[in-house]
């Protein structure tokens, strides 16, 4: 089973999904993220799916689960980089991803988190010092 790496940039955890996810990898990622948010005190999570060519109901549910989970740890989640074909398919499948914040790309996702008061780098360190 492949594990998806979680990177920490200041107060933000970045997950970039680059592989065709097995269901078990999806579940592992949820657990790893919960652990990592709790351990680092991160206030934001960005999930980059620009390399993901399909999102089915199982993977879609993961986004909603991660968003709810991170809220319990006072962190906000943004899903970024969804491909147009994936978006069209999701809507037709009937998956609305309620409660999941999205942004067009990584840069805009980071901006959203900054707007919510989640810092990166020095800002985060200063605040937590």
């Amino acid at each position: 089973m492949e594990r998806v790496p979680i990177l920490k940039i200041g107060g933000i955890l970045l997950v970039s999904i680059q592989v065709d996810l097995h269901d078990q990898s999806v579940l592992a990622l949820q657990e790893d993220l919960a652990e990592k948010i709790s351990a680092t005190g991160a206030h934001g999570v960005v999930i980059d799916i620009s390399a993901v060519d399909i999102v089915d109901s199982f993977i879609g549910r993961m986004f909603a689960t991660i968003a709810s989970l991170s809220r319990l740890f006072d962190a906000d989640t943004v899903v970024v980089g969804m491909r147009p074909a994936v978006a069209i398919t999701l809507v037709e499948l009937g998956l609305t991803l309620d409660g999941v914040r999205t942004a067009l790309d990584l840069e805009r996702g980071m901006e959203i988190l900054r707007g919510l008061g989640v810092g990166t780098g020095a800002t985060f360190d200063a605040r937590d010092a």
């Binding site: 269901d23 060519d53 399909i54 999102v55 089915d56 109901s57 199982f58 491909r83 147009p84 074909a85 994936v86 069209i88 398919t89 037709e92 499948l93």
Partner: peptide
């Protein structure tokens, strides 16, 4: 088309599961 590929692959994923 890319959209139709994505749709049929997504359907197949649901059905295989």
């Amino acid at each position: 088309s890319l959209v139709d590929q994505t749709k049929v692959v997504t359907a197949a994923s649901e059905l295989a599961r």
